[in-house]
Structures are given as C-alpha cells and as structure tokens.
Design a binder for these strands. Structure first.
Lengths: 188, 188
DNA sequence: CATAACCCTTACGTACGCGTGAGGGTTTGC
DNA sequence: GCAAACCCTCACGCGTACGTAAGGGTTATG
C-alpha cells in the first residue's frame, strides 16, 4: 500500500522538496509533489522489484532524495518518472550501462542546451535502430502469417498417415514455395 | 571460401543425398543439393560463429549429415535452411530452449498433420506476442519522435547559460507537457 | 512494548548465448 | 612431405539483469 506524505518519518528540511516557482507538473492523481515513497512503494508503483531499484541506484541511475533516521531510502515522485524512463529505455534496447553513460553525459553537461543536444543525438541514433527493428519485426510478422496459412492446408488437405519426412514432396500447397519458418522445422 | 561438391572427402553413400522424386528446391544459386559444407562454411554462410553451430548441435537443433574420416562434421544445404530458421526464431524472441522444445515436439509427432498443427499453435501464439511487441515499439518510436521535436526547441530557443535543473520551469515549449523520455533524463 | 511487515547490507547464484583458449588431429596445396 | 588453414573435444569465462538468501535493524499499529 502506498503511503502518502509520510512526514511523520524523519524528513528533514522544508515541507516542499522542490521550491521551483513554476507549477510542478502533477505526477499522478493521488501523488502530490511532497509524497515520500519507500523502496517497496516505488517498486510496486513501477512494476520493478526492490532488487532492481537497488541495482539502479548502485549503477548511479537513481538516487533517493534522502534517508530516514533508520537509513531507509526516501524517494520523491520524480523517482517514478526516473524509473519509468529507465524502463522505456530498456524496451528501446538500451542496456543498463548504456543508460549509465547517458546519465553521466547528461550530468556532465554544463548547460541545458548541451544536455539537450547530447540527448537528441542518442535518441536520433536509437530512432533509426528502432525503425530497423520495426521493419525486421514486420517482416517476421508477415512470415508468421504466411506460414500459418501454409500450415492451414496441412490441417485440411493432409492425410493422418503421412510422416513428416514426406513433406518435401507434398503437392497440396498450390505453387507457393514453402515458407522458411516451415521449411526449417522440417529439415532435420 | 565455400567449397562445392566436396566429394573427394570421404562422403560415403550415393551421390545424391536426397532421393526424393520431387524436384528439390534449389537452395541458393551455386549451392546444389549435393553440396557438402564444413562447419566453417556453414558459419560463414549464415553469419554465425563456429561455436554457435556447435552449440546448436549440442542442443539437438542441428545435425551434420555425416562425419569425414577425420571426424569433421559434414553438412548438407538443408543445414543452411535450418540455421536460418533458428536465427529467425531467435529474432522472434524464442530462446534456444524454446527452440529445443519445438524441435522435440516436431520430432515426436507421428504424422505430418500433427506436426503441422503443433507448429501452428506455437506460431499463432508468437504472432500475438510479435504484434504486441510491434505496438510497443511503434509507441516508443512515436515518443522518440516527439522527444526529438521537443528537444529541437532547446537547440534554438534556449540560452547557453541555462543549467539543466532550470528545465522544469522552462517556458519555451508551448503548452505541450514534457515527454517522458525527456523528463526522465532531467529528473535526478 | 510487542509484533508484523517493512527495510538494510553483503554476497553468492542463475539463465542465456555464446567467447576463448588449450592441446591436439586433419586436409589441402604446393 | 610439409606448412597453412582448417577441424576436433573439453572446459572454464563472460556480460547482462537481476534472484535469493542470510543476518540483522526499523516503523507502524494495537
């Protein structure tokens, strides 16, 4: 269960963690900007395990705002944004050490402008890779569909006594040649 | 260099390895049905390493037709089909042990019909997974594009002296809220 | 103040898909 | 018949992203 505004924990300093003048973007309904999350809460909210959160911290990808008197990690709502960011990057094919590099590069950037241009560069490269991967997956999707339709004929036209090794001489598949995904399964 | 028709190697048996009556599908221009490949040839032709080929054999995914007098593995052209099949399955997200299971199930199928229906089942499931992955990747692609356009504004409108931590209060990005892929990089 | 349900650090274990030798035969081509 | 370029069989190593205890404090609740 996510606890809210755990201010009775030893949370030193002012009530609001960000003193930015701009209206802070409300992270989520029910998560106010001074919410404090324990590692378990953060884990549940992001679908990660506690172990994973710890790992991210060890790798420098994530930092708790603070610690409680008893050394509990205390996270703000921005940790949610951060962990979801990590997750999306992973889905895009970044390894955790790729992300480490990226975080370092962002941190080393003196100006926001430089940070933005570095981020753009990385994202632009990844966009190309992602599109390549999409093309590959779309092609494989087509091959799956083609194979399924090819195999459909086996379900209706083939006789139960025919053994697999007779497939190469099968006449029941119009003139279309055997899809790779089917041929590979027979070849052995 | 791929050698062809290495019949001077100890290749016992008749000249043609398949005596099927049907016209054998020519595997590739320059690869006739009685071509013999050594493991290195197979590796080069498929982009795999020799180690990988050995592994596939250990896992029961692949079998050399024969061995030379000196215990060299001798592969036929169907090994090409098989290795490419394995590669495509890997790209679809099958692990090698998934493929092991699949190969076992195919081999255990008495009839071609049963084998076909089992294969269909696996492919149908994988088709759904593939489409889900496609959806996810397409969404991430959109987010990359969105982030790049957002970051473009930083390159033109932002001042060189602005530090990264000032980004949350930036006014230069119309009303569109910060994309996750950008917000995550700033949150630290 | 007791107890359940958390949290802490440390550190070894796991699954996957090969990489990388070591030590030693085999083929081919000149 | 000799050297280069292959191939063989072990068998340990590696990078990634956590899993899984072990041993021991901390917090909220009654």
């Amino acid at each position: 269960m996510a606890r809210k505004v755990r201010l009775h924990l030893t949370t030193p300093g002012p009530t609001n963690e960000r003193s930015s003048l701009a209206e802070p973007p409300i992270e989520e309904l029910g998560v106010s900007p001074d919410t404090v999350l324990l590692v378990g809460d953060l884990a549940k909210a992001t679908g990660k395990t506690v172990r994973a959160i710890h790992l991210y911290e060890d790798l420098g990808l994530l930092r708790p705002h603070d610690r409680s008197k008893g050394r509990y990690r205390l996270f703000g709502p921005d940790a949610l944004v951060r962990v979801r960011w990590i997750t999306k990057l992973q889905s895009l094919g970044f390894s955790l050490s790729d992300i480490q590099e990226l975080v370092r590069a962002q941190g080393d950037s003196e100006s926001a402008k430089l940070a933005a241009s570095r981020l753009s560069e990385v994202y632009l490269t990844k966009l190309a890779e992602t599109r390549a991967k999409l093309d590959e997956l779309r092609q494989l999707e087509r091959e799956l569909v083609e194979s399924l339709s090819y195999l459909n004929a086996c379900g209706s036209a083939c006789e139960p006594l025919v053994p697999v090794h007779a497939c190469p001489s099968c006449e029941r598949h119009s003139e279309s040649h055997t899809p790779d995904l089917v041929a590979g399964a027979q070849t052995h």
